[in-house]
């Protein structure tokens, strides 16, 4: 079965892997590099692939490690340690009044389940994700997209648990607001 893994087969998955990596890294060049390393690692360790899992799942598993390597290298650079831009706390401030009540209470979303069948919805979802400040988006995607625990994320990024919760919450508020504006609110 390992003979079935060659560059041609792997290349069929390349564009998917690149999109996956871009979502997390938000940098096409870094994403390309991570995918390149993933494919090399896949060739090198193809004997470890068991036909019981799908090739894509296996490749994504390798890619996650490569993405974390990139993030690790970058977290040593000062950029990540700087507190996130002010615009997100501004977002939270704008959503709530001074007394802590909603400035504009969330309204019902019509047929959210049905939206998940709509390709355009996913484009909006990706856009809204890109719209978030980079550190907020990164923590959110590590949590929800790469399925890491809060503890793992804190360790990886060397931030406190509380800080992690705050970033996750801001991400959710920001996504909710963006989906409401660009998708669910339009039909209202």
């Amino acid at each position: 079965m390992s003979a079935a893994i060659n560059l041609d087969v792997l290349n069929e998955h390349r564009s998917y892997l690149v999109r996956y990596a871009i979502l997390q890294l938000r940098d096409p060049h870094l994403a390309e590099d991570a995918v390149q390393e993933t494919l090399v690692a896949a060739i090198e360790s193809k004997s470890k692939f068991s036909a019981q899992s799908s090739l894509r799942t296996w490749l994504v598993g390798i890619l996650k490690h490569k993405i974390l390597d990139v993030l690790r290298k970058r977290s040593r650079e000062p950029q990540l340690n700087v507190p996130d831009g002010e615009d997100e706390s501004e977002l939270v401030d704008a959503l709530f009044k001074e007394n802590g009540h909603w400035a504009d209470p969330p309204q019902t979303w019509a047929n959210p389940e049905q939206s998940m069948e709509n390709t355009h919805f996913w484009e909006i979802f990706e856009q809204c994700n890109q719209h978030m400040p980079i550190n907020t988006a990164r923590v959110f995607m590590m949590r929800e997209f790469m399925d890491m625990t809060t503890e793992e994320i804190c360790q990886e990024l060397a931030i406190s648990t509380t800080n992690c919760w705050v970033l996750l919450h801001r991400a959710r508020l920001s996504l909710r607001e963006c989906l409401d504006l660009k998708w669910f609110g339009i039909a209202r």
Binding site: Y16, R19, Y20, L23, V60, W102, P105, P106, Q107, T108, W109, P112, M116, W122, F125, E126, F140, M141, E144, F145, D147, R172, L175, R176, L179, D180
Partner: peptide
């Protein structure tokens, strides 16, 4: 007592679910 927060609660669950669905939608 709060309808806005009830809607928020549902939407939060949806966002959680959707984000986990995203890898399959790429």
């Amino acid at each position: 007592m709060c309808r806005g927060c009830r809607n928020f609660e549902k939407q939060l669950a949806f966002i959680h679910k959707a984000a986990r669905e995203l890898p399959r939608k790429l």
